[in-house]
Design a protein around this nucleic acid. Structure first.
Lengths: 257, 257
DNA sequence: ACCTGAACACCGTTCAAGT
DNA sequence: ACCTGAACACCGTTCAAGT
């Protein structure tokens, strides 16, 4: 479906660091500074010159700081000036490394989506368990960075998310999903995970908020009898609901055998 | 699940128009100026004074203009100054009618989500057809206003969307979905529709964009063999994919009989 | 090659004031 | 009750310079 792998957004004329997205996603982690990766290897090429107190600006450092800022301040809380400040750099220094704020979003987003693979050895015959694990891990990764889910559907697709889709596709294919159904199956799961995660990350309400919401619904009870009775807005078990719905969907997807 | 019907956002201290969301959603349409509604009844109370050339500001007019602006300019294109300008009002006049920009978003969003009901008479026994129609209509309403889908999960739930959820819940319940599964079923469908629509509204690429994307994927083919072969990113049939996935999900949801 | 401050063209919102 | 312009405290980004 009309999605766009990053790097495809037309040639940008001006100064631009070598795009890390063009590196193969498997071999070396594109952003080693990603909080999802192993501890950043701070040692650069030469360690002869002693410790750098203020390592100069780099894409990796920028991306890592952006993720931190996004985690604490949210999507609207990421300001270019503040990001530079955090890095001990002058206000406008970022613009030598990145094209614009959009690019910061793209890089931060994909850096958060690295997948480590299933816990046990590969080639399990339990395709359903594998898919379940992949999607729960995907959701968990995004919930660890609540700004990421809402960004994902509207940004270029980076190497990490493409790898996840590749693995998902491969697994479903091996499980026996017909080629003609494969894309529809993948997008169904994509839709479900994105919808669930965006919703869960967005509706963050205190207990009081929620009880006020339900009270309000009760007040209007005559208009919403069914969802009032089922306490739709009070339901708290996000994880359980996610798994239950995923079960429904996988039941429907399962190749009839 | 922890969602919040609008109006529950705590008492605001300052000037504030009587919230139209508190009106029952069924009886009278909350925003008669909504583009989803019948032609706006421009005649106010007294028609004795002749035609007003410049009808004074009102919540309805503001909401209608906001929807127009959002449709043409997108989420980031809605500016309070420009909105006032469109209404022939002074720059800051809006703030007497609305609390802030957030409130404009909430009202515009719900105004776009009115549901007219199924085409034929009620009480059909075809629950699956009913659900299908409701969800396709919901998606279509949001795609007519591409900014709406991404806004829905993070805003207060207005009367129109609550009505849709109520009807959906009621239909599923009548169809035989167990009470214990009801909320999970509703949120599954919500997740699917939101994910599908947000994605479809966001990935708007030209044909050239898409072929560039696929070419790029082919270039990296060794890393993404499966999705490269299935042409995941080239697939164009959004409507078909939506229906197919919905079929999968409803298969899983269908009460075993 | 890499970084910088000043400046530009915007924003949402407050406020004191008008009718 | 309803509307207004000026002003405040911000933004992202450009630009001409610095080293």
């Amino acid at each position: 479906m009309a999605a766009k792998p990053s790097g495809a957004q037309g040639d940008r004329p001006r100064r631009l660091r070598a795009s890390p997205q063009s590196a193969p996603p498997q071999s070396a982690p594109p952003q080693s500074a990603s909080p999802e990766s192993a501890p950043p290897e701070s040692g650069s090429s030469e360690s002869l010159e002693g410790p750098r107190t203020e390592p100069s600006l780099s894409l990796d450092r920028i991306v890592a700081a952006a993720v931190e800022l996004l985690d604490t301040r949210g999507v609207d809380g990421l300001k270019m000036r503040q990001l530079a400040d955090r890095l001990g750099a002058g206000a406008m220094s970022l613009y030598w490394h990145v094209e614009n704020k959009e690019m910061v979003f793209d890089l931060a987003l994909d850096s958060v989506l690295a997948y480590r693979g299933p816990p046990q050895k590969a080639e399990s015959r339990d395709w359903r368990g594998e898919v379940f694990h992949m999607l729960e891990d995907w959701r968990a990764s995004m919930l660890r960075h609540p700004w990421s889910a809402s960004l994902l559907p509207r940004r270029a697709l980076g190497p990490n998310i493409l790898s996840r889709l590749e693995l998902l596709s491969n697994t479903l294919s091996r499980a026996g999903v017909a080629d003609a159904d494969l894309n529809a199956a993948i997008w169904s799961l994509w839709n479900y995970v994105i919808g669930a995660t965006v919703t869960r990350a967005s509706f963050v309400l205190s207990d009081e908020d929620r009880s006020v919401a339900q009270q309000r619904l009760t007040g209007l009870g005559e208009h919403y009898p069914t969802i009032e009775r089922s306490r739709l807005l009070l339901d708290d078990d996000w994880d359980g609901a996610f798994r239950k719905g995923l079960d429904f969907l996988l039941d429907g997807l399962a190749p009839r055998s």
